[in-house]
Amino acid sequence: MADKYTEAQVEEIKNKILEALENVIDPELGIDIINLGLVYEIVFDDSGFTEIKMTLTTMGCPLADILTDQIHDSLKEVEEVTEIKVNLVWYPAWTVDKMSRYARIALGIR
């Protein structure tokens, strides 16, 4: 069976997913999960199945469900996405180094 999307199209879709995830704001910090460096990997296949591998700032973070719900809501905007799985991973552990320059400035971190 031939692939439904070319590699270039998959990259374009992943970029749309990334842009949608920039609308998922950590309620405690007020910054999106992309700039916080919480998203480690986006997997998208020809069926539209999308897996978001991400971490949280701390293990046992009470916001996991809220962020997962926001991810599901934001990815509804990406028409190619048909199924979403959010996979929380703890390795590598999140550190402030994973944050974008923008996020560090916004939070006053050098």
Rank of each mutant, 00 (worst) to 15 (best):
P62T: 04
L38A: 00
S74V: 09
Y5V: 06
K4E: 13
M54C: 07
V78C: 03
Q70Y: 12
L36R: 00
L67W: 05
A20F: 03
S47L: 12
I31F: 02
R101T: 15
G108S: 09
A93H: 10
F44Q: 05
I71T: 08
M59V: 13
I33H: 01
V78E: 03
L88S: 05
V78D: 01
D3V: 14
L38Y: 01
D69Q: 15
I33N: 01
D69P: 12
E79Y: 11
I84D: 08
V96I: 15
A20W: 02
F44S: 07
V39T: 01
L56H: 05
E83I: 10
P27M: 02
S74Q: 15
V81C: 06
G60I: 03
E77P: 04
A64R: 06
Y102E: 11
N87A: 12
D26C: 07
Q70N: 13
I42L: 04
I33C: 01
I42H: 02
M99W: 04
L63T: 04
E83Y: 14
L36M: 05
Y91K: 11
L18E: 12
D32K: 06
L38G: 00
V89I: 15
I42Y: 01
G108A: 08
S74Y: 09
K98W: 12
G30M: 03
V39H: 02
I66L: 14
P92T: 00
A20I: 05
L67M: 11
T95A: 06
L56A: 07
I33S: 01
R110I: 14
E83F: 13
T55G: 04
I34T: 05
G30S: 03
Y40L: 00
G48T: 02
L88W: 15
R101F: 13
Q9P: 05
T50M: 08
L29E: 05
Q9S: 05
I71F: 09
I33M: 03
E51S: 14
G30D: 00
T57V: 07
W94G: 03
A8Q: 08
L21I: 08
Q9K: 10
F49N: 14
V81G: 06
M54W: 03
V39I: 09
L38F: 00
E12L: 11
L75G: 02
L107G: 09
Q9C: 03
C61Q: 01
I13P: 00
E22T: 14
I109A: 07
G60E: 02
